[in-house]
């Protein structure tokens, strides 16, 4: 059990690193040519970032084993902030 848990943390780390490398390829001016539009880059980059945040909170912080209230709260917070930031990016407040 304990060694499985240790493996899980390491696997999540490897996944986080891979996703970070991917998003750093997508992001920036170089990524626009590859992906298409700046807006697509931003949506991709921010979605990946908040997916990473979810992984960090659920595995490293161990929210995975927390009561349902906290799991829902964490996931809702992440979804809310991501949607809020994208709304601001697309000029919902301007």
């Amino acid at each position: 059990m304990a060694s499985l848990l240790r493996d899980r943390l390491f696997l999540v780390w490897a996944l986080l690193v891979a996703v970070t490398l991917l998003s750093s390829q997508i992001g920036g001016t170089s990524g626009v040519a590859w992906i298409g539009s700046p807006a697509a880059v931003t949506v991709a980059v921010l979605s990946i970032a908040f997916a990473k945040v979810w992984m960090v909170m659920f595995t490293y912080m161990d929210v995975r084993g927390a009561p349902l209230v906290l799991r829902v709260l964490v996931t809702a917070w992440i979804a809310l902030v991501l949607c809020g930031l994208l709304a601001v990016y697309f000029g919902a407040l301007g």
Binding site: S23, S24, I26, G27, G28, T29, G31, V32, P38, A39, V41, T42, V45, L46, I48, A49, F50, K52, V53, V56, M57, Y60, M61, D62, Y89
Partner: peptide, 26 residues
């Protein structure tokens, strides 16, 4: 100790978002 660890993971995840916003968003 767990709380201290959680604080550190928060520092990590805040940077994940800062990295995306400052370096990657187009």
């Amino acid at each position: 100790i767990e709380s201290g660890g959680c604080f550190w993971h928060m520092v990590d995840l805040l940077w994940i978002i800062i990295f995306a916003l400052l370096y990657l968003v187009e």
